[in-house]
């Protein structure tokens, strides 16, 4: 799993750093960051990824629209997607799963939890 390329999307620079550090800690090294849905779709134009981790609440294009767009695209219709949400936002989680996300993670999370969640959606 450590040779996988991961795209992570979050509008918060702090969150991007936290996610990057966590991913590195659990053994990933091939990482691509994006600031929002639009940025993510742009990045995906020139690169293929094996896993996508996305925030839900973002300006420009939020996580919901991004997941919908990805699932509409034959190239990304089966790519594992992990959605990052906040405690108390259960409706978001449900919405995410309904539109085709494979799993979710609640902030704050430890690298270990991230690892388990990724394992869970890859099997």
């Amino acid at each position: 799993m450590s040779d996988m390329k991961v795209l992570f999307v979050d509008d918060s620079p702090t969150m991007r750093r936290i996610i990057a550090n966590s991913l590195i800690k659990i053994g990933f090294s091939d990482l691509v960051a994006a600031e929002n849905g639009v940025d993510a779709l742009n990045k995906l134009k020139d690169t293929d990824v094996d896993l996508i981790i996305t925030d839900w609440n973002m300006p420009e294009m939020n996580g919901e629209k991004l997941v919908i767009k990805l699932r509409e695209n034959p190239r990304y219709k089966d790519t594992p997607i992990l959605v990052v949400t906040t405690r108390g936002m259960q409706e978001d989680v449900v919405a995410a799963v309904r539109i085709g996300a494979d799993g979710y993670m609640v902030k704050p999370f430890s690298p270990e939890v991230l690892k388990q969640k990724i394992k869970g959606i890859l099997k």
Binding site: P13, T14, I18, N21, P108
Partner: peptide, 19 residues
């Protein structure tokens, strides 16, 4: 999550700037 996330000073700096 202190200590589990790698370089905490980096994250804290980022946190202060963003907040």
């Amino acid at each position: 999550m202190y200590g589990e996330l790698g370089d905490m000073t980096e994250i804290l700096d980022e946190y202060v700037i963003e907040t």
